[in-house]
Design a protein around this nucleic acid. Structure first.
Lengths: 148, 148
DNA sequence: TTGATTGCAAATATTTTGCAGGCAT
DNA sequence: ATGCCTGCAAAATATTTGCAATCAA
């Protein structure tokens, strides 16, 4: 299942002219199967477990490729914006656990009427929008309860 | 008018125990009257015009104070999240020009039902949300038309 | 074979910290 | 007078670039 997803990513990268190297495969494997947002250093540490020789620079360069290819996207949080998550199908919105970074996409109502109305009201031509929810996921809620 | 706003900020800072120094006054003057988002370096350059002796480090430290005091907030953009803008009254949302950084707050519909519904659906306890619109402001639309 | 990709080292860019002197209170 | 705040220099972080060797195509 995850393997399937990885292959889709690798094919996509190959079609776009990138070479499928071992380090890239490892990074794809990590990013395509992660249900939490990850920053370059976190990806680096996970990747080292699979190939102790991999360099942090390769992570940066590969993340850039995956982003260019539309496979991952940068996730902004109140305390930083260097984490990445696999991209969504279509334009969906993110709900993110502020404790563990677990993220999921959700479909919102159609907010375009609000966005267009607001754009007109202020004289802006709207090109994009962000909607994100922050909170505690099921697991982290339980963890926090047990701590008390 | 802007002076009034500045004084409110300075009083608030004083009440919170901060000392009202000349560099802080200059930074408050800039942040309280700016209608565009500004990063520390931009604030530094603007502040230097008023006090050529001011240091970039002071900008960083003062921005932290203003943020702590709830007077400014960090603004996240697709290409960076180191800019600041004066805080809103209540929980409003931002519409930002991606070209010049001009920003304004707007009141949305009440999106809480959507947020709560989504939180329940995924098992998250929602603590916060972000809604931001990006686009081109009136002036930048005109600038771009004239360029063609 | 060829040139894109890698890992290392070094360079940049950004932000934070240590400290002596100055200034608000 | 006290100790918070400032500016400088230096340190710590985060990210990017140069380069020779390697490897996918």
């Amino acid at each position: 299942m995850f393997e399937h997803q990885q292959n889709i990513w690798l094919e996509s990268l190959q079609k776009q002219g990138y070479r499928i190297t071992n380090p890239l495969k490892i990074i794809v494997e990590i990013m395509a199967s992660s249900d939490v947002i990850l920053n370059p250093t976190q990806v680096f540490l996970l990747a080292k477990e699979k190939n102790s020789n991999i360099g942090l620079v390769t992570i940066y360069r590969s993340m850039e490729k995956l982003e260019q290819a539309g496979l991952i996207g940068r996730v902004h949080m109140p305390d930083g914006c260097q984490s990445f998550f696999h991209a969504s199908n279509g334009h969906q919105h993110l709900i993110i656990c502020e404790q563990c970074g677990k993220a999921e996409y959700f479909e919102g109502d159609d907010l375009n009427p609000l966005f267009n109305r607001t754009g007109e009201q202020f004289g802006y031509q709207i090109t994009d929008h962000w909607l994100q929810l922050f909170g505690f996921c099921q697991k982290c809620k339980e963890i926090n309860l047990n701590r008390k």
